[in-house]
Amino acid sequence: MEIKSTLKKGILILLIFTLIVSTPSTLAFGQEESSIQQQEEIDLQQELESLGNLLKLIKANYAYEVTEKQLIEGAMKGLFYNLDDYSNYYTEEEFKELNETVSGDFGGIGLYVTEKNGNITVLTPIKDTPAFKAGIKPEDIMVSVDDIDIRGISLKKATDLMRGEPGTKVKIGIVRRGESKPLYFNIVRELIQLNPVEYEILKDNIGYIKITEFNNHTLENVLIALGEFDRNKIDKVIFDVRNNPGGSLREVIDVLRFLVPRGPIVHVKYSDGQIKTYFSYNDDVNFKLAVLTNKGSASASEIFAGAIQDTGVGTIIGTTTYGKGTVQSIIPLANGGGVKLTVAEYFTAKENPVDKVGIQPDVVVENTTKEDLQLKKAIEVLSKSATEL
């Protein structure tokens, strides 16, 4: 396989967004447009030839071993060099990890782990997952996966070893306090669905919901929490989206449709100038809300906070959000890899920009002590009577 033809295939895979709409008003205009297109094609062919020659030069003279595939993947990544920070090319392995992160679904055993004192340490098993059922406990120190010693390796490498196709087996070795010898567990992997929602009932009969990300399971778990609050006659709820990096546009809109009144939620402006507005159709808003934000609240979290603020159903408390006001599309490619490409910018219900600006809180509170002053303020705000608000 020649480098030039392979490179051309790789780059052409990425040109999936090219759309030429031709509606010539005169013959002269049509000829001029055709001429420009022909010149652009010639220029592209010349650039591809130059790039192909550069790859040949590297392969022939580079001091170390490098494969044609590695060079082509590097060239494809290079196409995104001058784009924004959120547009990237992903290899097949990287693209699989990206999809798992976005969806919240992966094949594994169901553990939250961290690196502690140089050891891979269990924070907690996820309830009802294979690890939970097998009896792995918080503070267990992981020492092996399938008889591979994982002491001293990175957290990512350790988690990669634990993950795999649902239905496959994995042998986990751990050291537990009080046990003289390592314990071993033979576990069958399952499809793990990460629940990004935690909730509880606070004092003064106020509901609290923390959303760590907007993955494919956010809506279903928010509705479980709201249902519990409704059964307990709770109509005041704090949503905590601090350090929530964002996630699915669809998911955050679906959640907001249960919280904000009929009208616009967010406006999304695409590269061709078209604007798509997403609406709520809710005529029965039941909750008084407070939303906790900080610098780590980004993207979908900012859509969430902006919609609550603009529709007047809640108070934003904390610090200014990150300021990521763009939308990315995730596109699989024929080679198994994929692309994440910025395709639009979004604006709040009142058409305020978010990108590089963020959402300004209604009540600015910084957590300067160990006490959660932002949460304390949210409880104070919601505890007031309707007339005081």
Rank of each mutant, 00 (worst) to 15 (best):
L219Q: 10
E220Y: 08
E220A: 09
N221Y: 14
V222P: 03
V222R: 02
L223P: 09
I224P: 01
A225C: 05
A225I: 10
L226W: 13
L226Q: 12
G227N: 15
F229C: 03
F229L: 02
F229S: 05
I234W: 11
I234T: 02
I234F: 09
I234V: 14
D235T: 12
F239L: 12
D240P: 03
D240C: 05
V241R: 00
R242Y: 04
N243W: 00
G246I: 07
L249D: 10
L249H: 11
R250N: 07
E251L: 05
E251D: 03
E251M: 08
V252Y: 14
I253Q: 12
D254P: 00
D254C: 01
D254A: 13
V255W: 12
L256K: 05
R257D: 03
L259C: 08
P264F: 06
V266D: 08
V268G: 14
K269T: 13
Y270I: 14
S271Y: 11
S271W: 13
D272Q: 02
G273W: 07
G273C: 10
K276T: 15
T277E: 14
S280G: 04
Y281I: 04
N282L: 07
D283E: 06
V285Y: 00
N286W: 08
K288W: 12
K288Y: 14
T293I: 14
A298K: 11
A298V: 08
A300H: 13
A300E: 10
E302H: 01
I303Y: 05
F304K: 09
I308Y: 06
I308R: 12
D310C: 06
V313I: 15
G314S: 04
G314T: 14
G314Q: 11
T315V: 15
I316F: 09
I316M: 01
T321D: 03
Y322K: 00
K324M: 10
G325R: 02
T326C: 14
V327A: 09
S329Y: 10
S329P: 00
S329W: 05
